[in-house]
Amino acid sequence: MLSFILRRLLIAIPILFGLLTVNFFLIRLAPGDPADLYIDKDMDAEVKANIMKSMGLDQPVHIQYTRYLKNVFIDFDFGLSYTKKAPVKDLILEAVPNTIQLSLLALGIQIFLGIMIGIFSAAKQSTWIDGTARVGSLFFYSMPSFYLALVFIFIFAGGVFYIFPSSGMVNPVTYESMSFGEKIWDRIVHIFLPAITLGIGGAAGMSRYMRGELLEVIRQDYIRTARAKGLTETAVLFKHAVKNAIIPIITLIGLSLPVLFSGSVIIESVFAWPGMGRLAVEAAFQRDYPMFLAINLIFGTVVIMGSLIADILYAVADPKVRLS
């Protein structure tokens, strides 16, 4: 197990390296110059040259490249954000917890809702409950997240009812003076809408898988045996069927982490959530190269970690699987 994880982590390094390389040259091939962001019409060529120099853009590309790699892999330094004028590392460290918070909560919602609906649907197979659940989950699965966000804001954040705040992470005015309990509550109120918007699509997908798996399991002999023993239907379902059906679902958990992370790109813009997704969009729009490269590296890491987690979870959950 340990050697498997280590091996996978070792493989991850060249992959990340490749990702960084592709990205590095991709953005340098693109037209437009980040220095132009700062240049005023009254500015001299000398000043512009100074700006270019301070960004390291006056060097030939291959030197910029080796220098960048050295900084990232040896000094763990991602450089200075062009637009925010602060170390990229600090900015990202500030944003990452917010996105992780949001994604983890969304993941929780996704797992809970997805599995519950899946079980319900399978247990009541071919009834109207099943039908509604299936159509409903397909409907949400097919819905663009920005649209869902709009609808939620429309209904719950001031359009029809005003139950939840429409944007932000905390109440900016009163947060600092709140007691600990109030702070927690304030955060819950603010995270609720974005998290549910982010999680609901995945939940819909998961419930579809869960239902399918469960139906498959129910057909197996040992379920028939369990029924024959005279166990109640609920006992059969939860003690025997669900336990087995959930194994393949567990893989999904690892795989949906990167999906949630990229989903945050849109959700964070709509709900003004100060996380990675917004940094990513801004960096792309404003040509903030160092920021952009670092964000890509992190998103890439999340993807790789996601699939690693999926494999590990699978191995843990299913003793038949041997990692090699």
Binding site: Y38, D42, M43, D44, V47
Partner: peptide
Amino acid sequence: DPKVAWSAIKW
């Protein structure tokens, strides 16, 4: 100072 690169340096 051009090294500071103030955008209104011309003033």
